[in-house]
Design a protein around this nucleic acid. Structure first.
Lengths: 341, 341
DNA sequence: GGGGTGTCTGTGACCGTTCACAGAGAGACC
DNA sequence: GGTCTCTCTGTGAACGGTCACAGACACCCC
């Protein structure tokens, strides 16, 4: 039985005041870095804080200020993908970095079912978070309407539906997809296909649009295999399907690196050499790209920066210093040429 | 400027009491499921809660009860690995499941530097968490002494140093390593090596010990390549090193699936066929195992269950219902035979 | 000297819960 | 009918901060 005895009572702001010979109010002012405190009082309080080992009680502060000092990090993906997709992880780390730097706690909320969706909505309306970063919202997401109804400061990662006025950060998926496809074509490929995914989201549909634009009249709908998710197995089965539809295919644009990894394995199993027989390009430049054999040519997406930008945007909204430009955060991408095309 | 106007005041316990025609105390009792409330009052209150849309204010509750309703999930690994290692992710999901089921918020704390270590220690002593799940603590971790000094209920994932009295859950790494090595030998391998890792942790050193035990007198220290971390690149470079030391090697035990994936790629690059020329086995049965070509023979480790068991153990300590058996949670593993050996 | 302005400090009320205590009523038992 | 127990309810005082307000003091200017 290690029921940890009666924990020692922690020092409060009153103890500090007593120790420093001032009032609670003055201590509070020092703690919050407010002006109008004499240097003498400030010094005495700082010493007292150290002496009594004072640590602020966040519950009390949150109660008094009616804030939670927490920001929700909402991911609308299956739990499994949350782990498998290094992109989401990188966005999370970036956001966490900015938030912990400004004394906010990040709370991750994964939506994987209708039930989760309600749970998160309740969480948001319960005032447990002061704001939210939303990753990979669907085009028709009810979450977005919930958020704007509650008036919770939020920033999306990825472009929201045109009707929405929620701020967002993102990349130019269409332009980047066009660029990488053009690179693929420039290596002399004639029959180019695509393993697409997540067409219900801006990233998925924009990447397909960019692919289509790059090919122009040569575009052939038959050579596009569609999938639900950006995942390895989708790449594997998708490539098998594509080879069946068009055995002559000599170039493939995979909508993500994870998909590309699956494509490479399927091609190897089918006895095709990469890049000699078939050129393959991906999207993300995540850790998958360097795990592949051959190393993957792909689009570099600054996932960590996206997370940082999104978090910074939420904080700016909280402080009321947000600019009015919702797309202020369109970050740069570039093609990274390695071995696979 | 979307500074979100004055948010509507949320309903409090007083509003519910007024609406139901009872006192605050009675409402509080119903909310906390206490006995000694008449069926009539209970019903009236439940209806009132729904009518006014009441959601409890956790800050106020935490202040009054002097609890935080939060459990720390402490990972002592580099940020990068936190993402790359599907095992940690699975443990996290398991823990999160149990915790959110009992109304606790999970707070992830990643320790990646000395500075982080201090930050986490401050966080723990600040009363921000009621308990902690600690993953992959090092044998000499100062965190463990901090925790036992503060008397915070905690449970480790993985066996702690013998001197520690902290409860833990884990698997029999040594026995499992011996079993998978024996399987490898049973496929007729003569020169068997190991790519080891994380020898400063129980999991790493126990897996090496099990390997050694299985080989008996045939054990050859030269055929063990040591690494810092359980990661893909360690497998790749480690295998290259092993082939240099012993070109005749025909069996490899990789200390994790991620390492095994690196081993497979290095072998492919060296022109060796798996399993014909070399048999390869891993450890974890994580998502890596199914991504490999050929599919990996490995030890199934119930990572998700470990997370659940650890979280449950912390909750039991909080409720004071913990059993006194610190190793009550030794979970089962088994060998999964696929294609690589 | 009177009035204004700017700096600094203390006090009481409040944030929304829980908890201990007191007390009301009902029934059981002698 | 008195006492005892059991069930149920209301009340006031915390919990540990923040915030608005009032007031003290110093200084400057007319």
């Amino acid at each position: 039985m290690s029921t940890a005895g009666p924990r020692p009572r922690r020092a409060t702001i009153r103890d500090v005041a007593l120790e420093a010979g001032v009032s609670r109010g003055t201590v509070s002012r020092v703690l919050n870095g407010e002006p109008y405190v004499s240097a003498q009082a400030r010094e005495a309080i700082e010493k007292a804080v150290a002496r009594v080992g004072y640590v602020p009680n966040s519950a009390a502060r949150n109660l008094a200020t009616r804030r939670s000092q927490a920001i929700g990090f909402i991911v609308h993906e299956p739990h499994e993908l949350f782990l498998e997709d290094p992109n989401i992880g990188a966005i999370l780390l970036g956001a966490n970095r900015v938030l912990s730097g400004s004394d906010h706690q990040m709370v991750s909320l994964v939506i994987d079912s209708e039930r989760d969706s309600r749970r998160v909505a309740r969480y948001l309306s319960g005032g447990f978070v002061d704001g939210a970063v939303v990753v990979s919202a669907r085009q028709d997401d009810t979450l977005l309407t919930t958020i704007s109804r509650l008036g919770i400061p939020a920033t999306l990662v990825g472009r929201p539906p045109a009707t929405s006025r929620v701020p967002w950060v993102g990349i130019d998926n269409k332009g980047a997809a066009r660029a990488i496809t053009e690179h693929l074509i420039s290596t002399g490929r004639r029959r180019v296909g695509m393993i697409a995914a997540a067409l219900d989201r801006d990233s998925g549909s924009d990447r397909l649009a960019g692919f289509r634009e790059a090919l122009g009249p040569a575009f052939d709908r038959r050579l596009v295999v569609e999938n639900q998710l950006y995942e390895y197995t989708a790449g594997r089965t998708g490539m098998i399907e594509l080879l069946e539809r068009e055995p002559e295919v000599d170039g493939v644009f995979a909508a993500s690196d994870a998909i590309a990894a699956g494509v490479l394995d399927a091609l190897r199993a089918a006895g095709r050499r990469v890049p000699e027989d078939v050129g393959v390009v991906g999207f993300d430049d995540s850790s998958w790209a360097l795990r592949c054999q051959p190393l993957l040519t792909t689009v570099h997406q600054p996932a960590r920066l996206l997370g940082e930008a999104a978090a910074a945007s939420v904080l700016a909204q909280l402080r009321g210093t947000a600019t009015d430009d919702p797309a202020g955060g369109l970050l740069e991408t570039h093609v990274v040429v390695r071995e696979s095309a």
